[in-house]
Design a binder for these strands. Structure first.
Lengths: 213, 213
DNA sequence: CGCTAACCTAGAACAAGTTTCAGTATCGAT
DNA sequence: ATCGATACTGAAACTTGTTCTAGGTTAGCG
């Protein structure tokens, strides 16, 4: 018997790729106005010119669809960020700057952000692999912003995880109207100080972390 | 015209109070096995001996119901914690200990935890006030664990907010099977270091924060 | 070309959250 | 004790995510 863990998905034909794109586009479109609730599976199917059953073949649930939409958007964001890397002095500053930039990007499409983030946090175990991909993408973005000279230490990875937790959580509280953008910014800056805490102890850390006060 | 912001809800009669309790009990019961999906409104109504319409009069949505269930459980937890306060040296240690204790409590009822947390993060604006209450309860628990000599500084409040973000977010990743309890514990400890960062700069901080390495 | 398996479509059907409605019971005040 | 207002019940209806079915289409291959 052939054991085939992590079997690669069969490559999609051009038409299939196109369908997939149309679906993701329709999803983002509908989410853009109306947010989570406006992304109705029948609507997505119709706007992307695909039968409902087919939609479910490509994305086994609404949550899967929206998480995939998030992956898609994150890729855009990532490549945008790569073009103009953050300029801060310390790693903490650069990370905070990057996250705030991402925040402003989401601010321009709050409904889309709402749909994606709600899906992400509502996802149950059946969506773990996809959510994990999103998590890895986020980690990659943060690590890139830190611009470390070498591989991150375990402490730094721990700090990054906490930063991500905070990032998504502030996003949620902002989206549900329980915190202002300002508040979110403060929280992001607060958590980024953790980097300075691990940094100097790391291999050779950021240049001259000047603590205020 | 009488402007009546924040009008107090009319006091409930004894029978109404009893109904409310029965509903919350049924909700926790069903959530306890089966998690979020097992809390079906028709079932809740039936098990608490109330008509579906009545259930909706008490809790305008499933999310409202589960968030209220969470408030209820948090009260239990809070009073339990008050009886045996954490014994750590520094504020950071005490907070970490408290949160880990809470974690273990949830571990005993993972399905219930799942239902409550999913509801909390899925909540939209219409549930803001209730979610806010939960947030305040959590803040109170953390601040109590810190056991500060006076009112918290703004930095300390910022740290507490970040800690809460991390707390809920680790909970989510644990519940969705993407991180182990161990991992969650590490993240909690990591973020609690933020307290030591604000503490010494604060009014008079914890005694002797000994940084490892 | 012609075959076969996999894929796609249209639409019905089902499940669970939510709303609605007509009738009945309860509450508070007179 | 009675009356009007409010709350509760039981049941049906509506919405949207999800599943299922029967038949048509496409892609790869001999």
């Amino acid at each position: 018997m052939t054991v085939e863990v992590k079997s690669a998905p069969p490559p999609l034909t051009a038409r299939q790729e196109a369908r997939r794109r149309r679906i993701l586009h329709a999803s983002a479109q509908l989410a853009g106005r109306g947010g989570f609730d406006a992304v109705q599976m029948r609507e997505v199917a119709e706007s992307s010119g695909v039968a409902l059953g087919t939609l479910y073949r490509y994305f086994p649930s609404k949550i899967h669809l929206l998480v995939a939409t998030m992956q898609d958007q994150l890729e855009h964001l990532h490549s945008t960020l790569r073009k103009r890397p953050p300029a801060g002095e310390s790693a903490a500053e650069r990370v905070a700057e990057t996250l705030m930039r991402a925040f402003r990007a989401l601010q321009r499409e709050p409904q889309l952000a709402d749909a994606m983030v709600r899906a992400l946090t509502f996802a149950d175990r059946s969506v773990s692999p996809e959510v994990d991909t999103v998590s890895r993408q986020t980690t990659a973005i943060v690590l890139e912003a830190m611009n470390l000279p070498g591989p991150p230490t375990p402490e730094q990875l721990a700090a990054v995880r906490v930063i991500e937790h905070t990032w998504y959580s502030t996003l949620i509280t902002w989206l549900s109207g329980r915190a202002s953008i300002t508040q979110a910014g403060i929280d992001i800056e607060t958590v980024c100080k953790l980097i300075d805490l691990t940094g100097p102890a790391g291999r050779d850390g950021p240049a001259d972390p000047h603590y205020r006060r």
